[in-house]
Design a protein around this nucleic acid. Sequence first.
DNA 1: CTGTATCCAAAATGATACTG
DNA 2: CAGTATCATTTTGGATACAG
Lengths: 153, 153
Amino acid sequence: MDSAKITDLLSVGEPDGVSPDDPRVAGLAGLAAQMGAAPPTRDAPVREVMARLGDNWSALILKVLATGTFRHATLRRVIGALAAEGDISQRMLTLRLRALERDGFVLREAQPTVPPRVCYTLTPLGTALTAEFDRLLAWIEAHEAEIERARLG
Amino acid sequence: MDSAKITDLLSVGEPDGVSPDDPRVAGLAGLAAQMGAAPPTRDAPVREVMARLGDNWSALILKVLATGTFRHATLRRVIGALAAEGDISQRMLTLRLRALERDGFVLREAQPTVPPRVCYTLTPLGTALTAEFDRLLAWIEAHEAEIERARLG
DNA sequence: CTGTATCCAAAATGATACTG
DNA sequence: CAGTATCATTTTGGATACAG
């Protein structure tokens, strides 16, 4: 999207129009460039990963797996003990693990025994993601009081 | 949650039990401590903000607002031009802006004119959040190829 | 122009029962 | 134990019409 089109967009409904020097024009041009010719669709990694980190369970799953390797049932019990909502359903745990595995954040190792024993571990990529994610979490927690204040006032 | 309880949790279903020295015990104890006595509920800032950043529109709204102040209708047009999904519904834009305003990330200024003119701007807190968020986005984009590879292989 | 209300469709989540 | 299938419920999002 070029600057001329952006200027047009900003001008709609403004009787005096908008100057091409409006700082928003350059800002939006940069944003558009950053997003590339084809803006990220819902299944693009940036969108998908952010959606996972924002869903009900994936973030907690990552944080638990960051402490080591877990079997399916053990992971489920540990999450149930940590989460405010209580237990995660077996179905959701499987769905979330599959999504994390699919994107290369979690490694699944099944031993062909009876009964089966399946272990989940963070991959190096998953460990790195969790570390990055933790920075953002720390920022939010550091500003929690400010957010709560905005909610009240 | 103390280490004894964690050790118990990890021992369920393990014929040989689990040693209190299992590194996961210390890791989970740290995680439990970090989450506090009452784990964050769905409406806690950490959960709520992550949910917003992961939803369909809030991240883009923040990025656009990071370039300046926008009227409601202009913001809507700009988002429609940038998003892969096309236009955001008026309803969703209002809902998202309200949520961001509520948490102190966006400032809403209504001029009592006819027709009304309402401007939205990032607060300093919102600007700071967007900056932090951008770091995580940059990390994901930097590892996009790796994620795509995991999806294929 | 900004916003709300209403209705509807789609998606995420949960509960339960079942299989290997 | 790990996982799937099915169904109910909840949440989320979109379309439309309307009000100030």
